[in-house]
Design a protein around this nucleic acid. Structure first.
Lengths: 193, 193
DNA sequence: ACCTGAACACCGTTCAAGT
DNA sequence: ACCTGAACACCGTTCAAGT
């Protein structure tokens, strides 16, 4: 049994059953070894989680913009970041709990900084745009998770008798479009000052 | 010892030391009773957390808009929601974990629906505005928590030689202003279509 | 170098027993 | 009605012992 095998099994447990399923004893059973063998390879549970988090950080460092204009490149970064966040909810939560969110966002933030400057923004103005895009990405991932995944997700919010509004709130027909709309609105709003 | 006393002590533990500090044994020690006495009053740990979550839901139901125009009322709702979320990070996380986020946001969402309609939006258009505001509120709370609270919070993201940009990204001089700026940008963008 | 089982201090929870 | 201590099955972790 190698360290790599352990990390793979641990990542699978977290992905499929959530972080609470990742107990040292469960992991050992999964791998068919004694619990204590795992300790020899990875130190302890904290160190194991650290290793999983490091993996995630590396994946987020590979995000790059596409498109020709700064506007489209900013939107593409937002879209890519959103996709990565949505793909690994549990691992992202672990990154956050361990205080590595700053590090997770750094590559995308740097890319956003570059594009904001390419669009002509400087200083605090550029920082505001970068932050606002991050707000929208993070917020959309969380809010959409709610309307998709929650038991009470079908609960209808009274839309003042407006059926189309109620439907669109309960389950947006195209969450991706809604997201891009918001990003474009905020990008246009902050670029066109 | 009353049920109310138990809830108060539990809420204090969560607020001051985080949810991991809330163990039944620790809570019993804090209250000077046997662990099992707590079980008589609240059932079990799950039920205790449920009760704390219900309290939080009630507090969020008391959020109301202020101001005269729909625009200012929408911004005031966003501001109030943000303040409540920031005041109870651990409890909010518990609400989220327990799948009650939909319920937590419902009162504010209803108020936002009303204002979006007062501003003249209907159907999917109104829903988009409501969602976008929620995105920004939730995103800003998380992203700002990161830049305020994380050990690596001081880590400077290269701003392409732009010192003012680097400063503003590392620690925005006025997070509240940055937030309102983003909200206004998205509200204007989605109202003026 | 790599793995094992026993043991320790922590959990949440149940239950029979007390007042 | 309210509280107690003992007991159970689970944790993470350490350590001496094996190969």
């Amino acid at each position: 049994m190698s360290r790599e095998e352990i990390l793979r099994a641990a990542a699978r447990l977290v992905r499929e059953e959530g972080p609470r399923a990742l107990t040292m004893r469960r992991l050992a059973a999964e791998l068919g070894t004694a619990v204590t063998a795992i300790y020899w390879h990875v130190g302890n549970r904290e160190a194991l989680l650290d290793a999983l988090v490091e993996r995630t950080l590396r994946e987020f460092a590979a995000i790059h913009p596409t498109g020709r204009t700064p506007r489209t490149r900013i939107v593409s970064l937002a879209r890519a970041l959103r996709a990565e966040l949505r793909a690994r909810p549990h691992l992202i939560a672990m990154v956050h709990e361990r205080g590595r969110t700053e590090r997770l966002f750094r590559p995308v933030r740097q890319a956003l900084v570059k594009e904001a400057r390419a669009a002509g923004l400087r200083g605090a103005r550029a920082a505001e745009l970068v932050r606002a895009v991050e707000f929208l990405v993070v917020g959309s991932v969380l809010v959409e998770r709610v309307s998709e995944g929650e038991p009470a997700g079908g609960a209808v919010v009274p839309g003042a008798g407006d059926r189309a509004l109620e439907r669109a709130l309960a389950r947006p027909p195209d969450p991706g479009r809604l997201f891009e709309l918001s990003v474009r609105a905020v990008v246009e709003g902050l670029l066109g000052r």
